[in-house]
């Protein structure tokens, strides 16, 4: 019977396979195309005459002597100082992930283990906070930050991103800690541990899968953020995404758009590696909220 359930007529298989292939093309082609084109000169990547130019690169051959060129990368990374933005992004991302996981595990654990009614209200408040458009919060930060003279520095941005990240982190880790049996830490309490010792000795060793998954999403939030980083950082402290946006704003002339293309491809690359390595965790994280409510 189970076999009959999974038997499908040939046209249906063909149709669904075709649909899947179409979707994969739609999802992946833009990235492959841009990554390939970033090694060409602008006249090829933006070719009015023939789109095949972007593949074979005749103008690239003419201008640089090879069909592939790293000129755009060199110009962006070295001359325009994109390396500094990469460094800033690394600092911000590492700090945000570490701090928000530390705060989040403690808070999520408390929310999962406390039986009082206010935990419900805290979670609801977190849900509302999660829905706030980030730019509305930024418009609340700017003036006080100017006044306190803390605008423009990386630590300010880091703590803001941690705070914006907290509602989501709390929800996710709360639902994760709900799946860890209460008996585990309660038996530690019976054995004479304090609550914190129970957390450290009994819960921390088994919480890593949930922490890794949550950490991935904290990473993505910090890495992908444009609103906060573009408004709260000075030019020198800019991270990658606002830097790419600034390539666009000031330099729409010939040759300059390739700076943005190569920088965008550079910023995409780590994300691809991330998906490749952590595909399973990302999928389980996306569904965690749905399945566990």
């Amino acid at each position: 019977m189970a076999k009959a359930l999974h038997q499908r007529p040939l046209p249906l298989v063909a149709l669904s396979t075709g649909f899947v292939i179409l979707w994969v093309l739609l999802a992946a082609f833009p990235f492959v195309w841009t990554a390939w084109g970033s090694f060409k000169v602008e006249a090829d990547f933006f070719s009015r005459t023939d789109w095949m130019n972007a593949i074979f690169g005749p103008k690239t051959l003419q201008q640089t002597g090879g069909t592939f060129t790293g000129d755009a990368y060199e110009a962006a990374w070295i001359q325009q100082g994109f390396w500094k933005a990469v460094l800033n992004t690394s600092i911000v991302v590492v700090a945000v992930v570490t701090i928000s996981l530390t705060f989040g595990t403690l808070g999520g654990y408390a929310l999962a283990r406390s039986g009082f009614r206010y935990t419900f209200w805290l979670l609801i408040a977190a849900l509302i906070f999660r829905a706030m458009p980030h730019v509305t919060l930024v418009s609340g930060y700017l003036l006080p930050f100017f006044e306190m003279n803390i605008w423009g520095y990386l630590p300010t941005t880091i703590i803001v991103l941690v705070a914006i990240n907290q509602p989501f982190t709390l929800w996710m880790l709360h639902s994760f800690f709900m799946t860890i049996p209460k008996d585990l830490d309660e038996s530690a309490l019976v054995d004479g541990c304090t609550r914190f010792q129970a957390f450290r000795l009994a819960v921390i060793p088994v919480m890593w899968p949930g922490v890794v998954t949550t950490g991935l999403f904290s990473f993505l939030l910090a890495y992908n953020d444009f609103t906060v980083t573009s408004m709260l950082l000075t030019q020198e402290n800019q991270t990658m995404v606002p830097k790419i946006a600034s390539f666009l704003g000031s330099t729409q002339q010939e040759g300059k758009v390739m700076l943005a293309v190569s920088a965008a491809v550079s910023a995409m690359a780590p994300l691809f590696v991330l998906v490749m390595v952590f595909q399973r965790q990302i999928v389980s994280g996306l569904t965690a909220g749905a399945v566990k409510g």
Binding site: I159, V160, A163
Partner: peptide, 16 residues
């Protein structure tokens, strides 16, 4: 409960 949740709560109150 408060001992565990205060860092997270403080961040949300201050910055949200």
């Amino acid at each position: 409960f408060l001992a565990f949740i205060w860092p997270s709560l403080l961040a949300m109150v201050l910055f949200i």
